[in-house]
């Protein structure tokens, strides 16, 4: 349990970034609450993934900065950054013929120098990551042979082996069926509770985001539209403004969190809304 208690702060200020000529993010400010779970939601192409990529230095900001414990991440050496901040991109690639244990071991990359070899501490970090994600039983299997849900747990195990205080995940539940979505989100919550890992994830599903996040961030057109506790963010007016969708928001009887029910032109009981 090397990554405990002390939490790293991540602050985004006045961030503009994008690809080619266009700015996708337009002067975005965000303070990630340390030690909590933050979910970023928004319509397609609003810049959620771009924000996550900019926060993990995969793209250069045009203006503004990202501060990790008060220091700009663009001034940190790559390996040092990778020891503090982990990222699980949307579609990582598993090399053909690689075993689960081998793949998870790759998470130790930033902890190894040019001349330092593999150590006992590396093995221990990998073993702990496997046990935490319940992938220890499949450690010697080939990643190619796994189901989607197992594979996603393995990728999370790899990010865990990296032992960072901060973990960013880009849509960790895409392509998973609902039971595996819940399994992955439960696992991330366990990590957050047990280790105090700060988690920031982009989620597609508003209701799951509201259920699992301590802090909900809604983006629209490259800006932060509203952020705060799920109860304050997931409201009928915000859903209308961010997604252009009429809806009803009720309290989820199973979680006590807000639950959004979309209103369409068909499939409704009575002229609702």
């Amino acid at each position: 349990m090397s990554a405990a208690a002390h939490s790293t702060s991540l602050v985004v200020s006045g961030l503009s970034a994008g690809y080619g000529e266009t700015d996708i993010l337009q002067g975005l400010d965000l303070t990630v609450p340390p030690g909590r779970i933050t979910a970023i939601v928004g319509a397609n192409a609003c810049g959620k993934s771009t924000l996550l990529r900019a926060m993990s230095r995969l793209i250069q900001p045009r203006r503004g900065q990202v501060l990790l414990d008060g220091k700009s991440i663009h001034h940190l050496p790559s390996r040092q950054l990778a020891r503090q901040l982990g990222l699980l991109p949307q579609s990582p690639i598993a090399p053909e013929g690689i075993t689960v244990a081998d793949l998870v071991s790759r998470g130790r990359h930033p902890h190894q120098g040019l001349f330092s070899g593999w150590t006992r501490a590396d093995d221990e970090a990998v073993a702990e990551a496997l046990v935490t994600t319940a992938t220890d039983g499949i450690a010697t299997r080939l990643v190619d042979e796994l189901s989607g849900g197992q594979r996603q747990r393995v990728w999370i195990a790899m990010a865990l082996a990296q032992q960072t205080d901060l973990l960013l995940l880009d849509e960790p539940t895409t392509f998973l069926d609902i039971s595996h979505q819940i399994e992955v989100l439960d696992l991330l919550t366990d990590l957050n509770r047990a280790r105090g890992t700060t988690i920031v994830m982009v989620l597609h599903d508003l209701n799951l985001a509201a259920r699992y996040a301590d802090y909900l961030v809604a983006m629209a057109a490259g800006r932060l539209h509203v952020s705060g506790k799920p109860e304050d963010v997931l409201t009928e007016s915000n859903v209308r403004e961010v997604f252009g969708l009429e809806s009803r928001v009720i309290t989820d009887p199973t979680s006590g969190r807000p639950l959004m029910l979309p209103i369409g032109r068909h499939g409704m009981v009575e002229a609702a809304g």
Binding site: R53, R57, L58, A82, P89, P92, I93, G107
Partner: peptide, 21 residues
């Protein structure tokens, strides 16, 4: 001298970058 970083690229550019390459 870049063998380890090259190996990390097999996980995709984003993942490799996230691992400090």
């Amino acid at each position: 001298s870049r063998a380890r970083d090259l190996d990390a690229l097999r996980l995709g550019d984003d993942m490799a970058a996230a691992l400090g390459t």
